[in-house]
Design a protein around this nucleic acid. Structure first.
Length: 570
RNA sequence: CGGGGCAUGGCGCAGUCUGGUAGCGCAUCUGCUUUGGGAGCAGAGGGUCGCAGGUUCGAAUCCUGCUGCCCCGACCA
């Protein structure tokens, strides 16, 4: 591609709305342009990378034996009413009516449509297992779209749905998709982890997220340094500290703590570390009333774990200030587990505290030297907290570290939720109708592009991993207007490389060297060759890998062989 | 949903408080010079100042309404 004829506009200045690196760079390098909130045009340049991601996804899905199809973006409301999600999905589902006042949605996902197709097309267990996928535009009316295509409203997703006669077959199909995903993201040159996840609103049992590791990621993930255990932070189990509880040594005392309402203030006021304090959170109980959750002062409540406990209302809601007063007789800030009438559930770590500090259920008062079993009943014990870095891994090997990630893929074993709701059955070997087991497998294709940039950039611009780079090589001839020799060499290399099947961008603009270098770095093309009179005097050209900090010289006559060796190197 | 903020040329902004008919940088176009890290000079084009009302001799500026967009928050013991 000749730059002078290519419709690409780079920006020196950053549009005000862009907060994170990938969004900024995608705008500056001209990959995307905003049309409305969370809705973007992909320019020819940006589309090159998007298509590469799609191609890798397509190849690996095909290799795994899945069949590509294409479903409608617009779906009739009846299907959503049938599955129950018409009422369950909420305002993220964009609904509208046609001229005949019939209700439709723009699909945020396609379980209903594929299940409808499957119940019509699949009649026999002999047709199973089968996996259908599509690469298609979705729409989710996000409350707060942000970060460009990272969290857009309209986006491209690869979604796949598999159908099985039994759970064993589903597990095998799920494992095949897990392998396919691992191959895809590896081929794209991304650093990622497959992490255990909550299957959430979609339902079903087993579920893993594929997270591209990046500092700016929205999700926290916990991973072991001893094996390949990785889990979404909210899913990672916090084990009990090793060893028994220390024996009670202190006596119970009431201390005045005027206006000391937080763990931080309490620790400072009494000179006690947060890990020796117990914080007591009152949450709403199932069917009214409250439940007290007790955590160590240095730990955070995990809402997901808490709301799964019997007796605790789901979704988790903190008790109102009035409810706190009613249950404890004290203001929020002075709540403790001693003498409470409501159920008390302690985190595993909190249950091992001895001689601890907690609220006294009286304003401006705390208790010190508190001990379970002596000063109050032994509590019900549960895993209630988020893991922290350094915790032992639930896998039993190694310790946990916390990293941030961007969710680019999610695979689920759905089970029979949709097939039962929508009567999707086949005849089994005994000629009996049986509901199918389903798996679903998504990849945010547009988000992958943003995540790749988020993980691979520097202060100058994008650094594309080779397999998804829009071009492999950028040729930068200098002083093109004056130097015929430079011009001819550049044209020769361009023709030679292009004929050899390389994707080459030739910067044939009559621009100054600084501008060309800056643009080449902004665009992030992995391999750069500079053609200048200075080097050509000696028959030499300059090469620089986008991540490198120094130039490498090579003979102009061996250009093709040279660049091939560098392309093969990574 | 709650709170805050912003809408002025393609992009980034000033001008609004204190009303007088719109300006700066980048980008774009023309010419000359320049060519190894975002060039210089000279010139040019491009804006019904988000929309609708109102006040006024006069509104980007003041008032009212609307729309769009951005940011923050949704664990406190």
């Amino acid at each position: 591609m000749r730059w002078s004829r290519y419709p690409i506009n780079t920006m020196k200045e950053t549009p005000a709305e862009a907060e994170i690196a990938s969004h900024r760079l995608m705008l500056r390098a001209g990959l995307i342009r905003r049309l409305a909130a969370g809705i973007y045009t992909w320019t020819p340049f940006g589309l090159r990378t998007l298509r590469k991601v799609e191609a890798i996804v397509r190849e690996e899905m095909d290799r795994a034996g899945a069949f590509e199809l294409l479903m409608p973006a617009v779906q009739p409301a009846e299907l959503w009413q049938e599955s129950g999600r018409w009422s369950a999905y909420g305002p993220e589902l964009l609904r509208f009516t046609d001229r005949g006042d019939r209700a439709f949605v723009i699909g945020p996902t396609h379980e209903e449509v594929i299940t409808d197709l499957a119940r019509r097309e699949l009649q026999s267990y002999r047709q199973l297992p089968v996996n259908f996928y599509q690469i298609q535009t979705k729409f989710r009316d996000e409350i707060r779209p942000r970060f460009g295509v990272m969290r857009g409203r309209e986006f491209i997703m690869k979604d796949a749905y598999s159908f099985h006669i039994d759970e064993a077959s589903l597990a095998a199909g799920y494992a095949a998709m897990r392998d396919a995903y691992t191959r895809m993201f590896t081929r794209m040159g991304l650093e990622f982890r497959a992490v255990r996840a909550d299957s959430g609103a979609i339902g079903g049992s087993a579920s893993e997220e594929f997270q591209v590791l990046a500092e700016s990621g929205e999700d926290a993930i916990a991973f072991s340094d001893g094996d390949d255990y990785a889990a979404n932070l909210e899913m990672a189990e916090a084990l009990a500290p090793a060893g028994p509880r220390a024996a009670a040594a202190a006596t119970l005392e009431r201390v005045a703590t005027p206006d000391v309402r937080t763990i931080a203030a309490l620790g400072a006021f009494l000179g006690v570390p947060a890990a020796r304090c117990a914080k007591t959170l009152l949450v709403e109980a199932e069917g009214g009333g409250v439940v007290a959750l007790v955590l160590r002062g240095d730990h955070e409540l995990n809402a997901l774990k808490a709301q799964k406990l019997p007796g605790v209302a789901a979704p988790l809601r903190m008790a109102s200030a009035e409810a706190v007063r009613a249950a404890t007789g004290a203001e929020p800030g002075f709540v403790g587990p001693v003498g409470l009438a409501c159920p008390v559930i302690a985190d595993r770590s909190a249950a091992l505290l001895a001689d601890f500090v907690c609220g006294a259920n009286a304003v401006d008062t705390h208790l010190t030297g508190v001990n379970w079993g002596r000063d109050l009943p032994e509590p019900q014990v549960a895993d209630l907290r988020n893991v922290v870095a350094g915790d032992p891994s639930p896998s039993g090997r190694g310790r946990l570290g916390i990293a941030r990630g961007i969710e680019v893929g999610h695979i689920f074993q759905l089970g029979r939720k949709y097939s039962e709701a929508m009567n999707c059955t086949v005849l089994d070997e005994a000629s009996r109708p049986t509901a199918l087991y389903m798996g679903c497998y998504g990849i945010g294709v547009t988000r992958v592009v943003a995540a790749a940039i988020e993980q691979n950039h520097d202060e100058h611009g994008i650094i594309w991993p080779g397999p998804i780079a829009p071009f492999q090589v950028v040729l930068v001839p200098l002083n093109i207007a004056k130097s015929q020799r430079v011009r001819e060499t550049a044209d020769r290399l361009y023709d030679e490389f292009t004929s050899a099947g390389l994707e080459v961008l030739l910067d044939d603009r009559d621009a100054r060297p600084g501008a060309k270098f800056a643009d080449a770095e902004l665009l992030g093309i992995p391999h750069r060759i500079v053609i200048g009179d200075r080097g050509l005097e000696a028959g030499r050209l300059e090469y620089r890998q986008r991540r490198a900090t120094a130039n490498e010289e090579f003979a102009a006559d061996d250009a093709l062989a040279f660049i091939r060796s560098r392309l093969a190197a990574r």
